[in-house]
Simulated scan of single mutants.
Amino acid sequence: MAPELPDGWTVERLRRHSGDAEAGEWYMGHLDPDGSVGCWASYGPDLAEAIRNL
């Protein structure tokens, strides 16, 4: 598992730091038996909205 972000980091700060416009997006998907992840779609940076879209 990746280390936690330092205090005060936001999704936007993570995007600027990484140079990745999609960093911090919530993805829906499944976990395969071998441990790999199959992503279906991005549901944006808002966790509450992603949960509502389940």
Results as ranks from 00 to 15, higher is better:
residue 17 H to I: 00
residue 25 E to S: 08
residue 44 G to T: 00
residue 9 W to H: 02
residue 24 G to V: 03
residue 36 S to I: 01
residue 53 N to A: 15
residue 25 E to V: 01
residue 6 P to Y: 00
residue 9 W to S: 01
residue 28 M to H: 04
residue 42 S to V: 08
residue 23 A to V: 02
residue 19 G to K: 06
residue 13 R to L: 13
residue 32 D to T: 05
residue 14 L to E: 01
residue 37 V to Q: 12
residue 29 G to M: 14
residue 14 L to G: 05
residue 50 A to W: 07
residue 28 M to E: 12
residue 14 L to C: 07
residue 47 L to E: 05
residue 44 G to F: 03
residue 5 L to T: 01
residue 39 C to K: 12
residue 3 P to I: 08
residue 47 L to W: 05
residue 3 P to F: 01
residue 31 L to K: 04
residue 28 M to A: 15
residue 51 I to E: 13
residue 52 R to N: 08
residue 1 M to N: 06
residue 14 L to H: 01
residue 1 M to T: 14
residue 44 G to V: 03
residue 21 A to E: 14
residue 20 D to G: 08
residue 32 D to N: 12
residue 40 W to C: 13
residue 1 M to L: 09
residue 53 N to R: 15
residue 42 S to T: 09
residue 6 P to N: 02
residue 38 G to C: 10
residue 34 D to F: 14
residue 20 D to T: 01
residue 12 E to N: 07
residue 5 L to W: 01
residue 49 E to S: 15
residue 28 M to R: 13
residue 3 P to H: 07
residue 52 R to L: 12
residue 51 I to V: 15
residue 24 G to D: 02
residue 27 Y to V: 04
residue 32 D to L: 10
residue 1 M to E: 13
residue 28 M to G: 08
residue 22 E to S: 14
residue 36 S to D: 07
residue 36 S to N: 08
residue 2 A to P: 15
residue 35 G to F: 08
residue 6 P to S: 08
residue 28 M to C: 09
residue 21 A to S: 14
residue 17 H to D: 12
residue 45 P to M: 03
residue 7 D to H: 02
residue 27 Y to K: 07
residue 42 S to N: 10
residue 23 A to F: 00
residue 11 V to N: 10
residue 41 A to H: 07
residue 53 N to L: 15
residue 21 A to G: 08
residue 26 W to R: 06
residue 9 W to G: 00
residue 52 R to K: 12
residue 11 V to Y: 05
residue 37 V to I: 14
residue 41 A to F: 07
residue 48 A to K: 11
residue 30 H to V: 06
residue 11 V to R: 11
residue 48 A to I: 02
residue 47 L to I: 05
residue 34 D to T: 03
residue 46 D to C: 14
residue 52 R to M: 10
residue 13 R to A: 13
residue 22 E to F: 11
residue 49 E to D: 14
residue 45 P to V: 02
residue 46 D to I: 10
residue 6 P to I: 03
residue 29 G to H: 10
residue 51 I to Q: 11
residue 45 P to E: 06
residue 49 E to M: 13
residue 8 G to I: 00
residue 10 T to I: 03
residue 35 G to D: 10
residue 6 P to Q: 07
residue 14 L to D: 00
residue 21 A to F: 00
residue 5 L to G: 01
residue 34 D to S: 10
residue 42 S to M: 11
residue 16 R to T: 11
residue 22 E to M: 10
residue 1 M to D: 12
residue 2 A to Q: 13
residue 30 H to P: 00
residue 33 P to H: 04
residue 45 P to Y: 00
residue 21 A to K: 13
residue 48 A to Q: 12
residue 9 W to F: 08
residue 31 L to W: 04
residue 15 R to H: 07
residue 22 E to H: 11
residue 20 D to V: 12
residue 49 E to H: 13
residue 48 A to H: 02
residue 26 W to A: 02
residue 11 V to P: 00
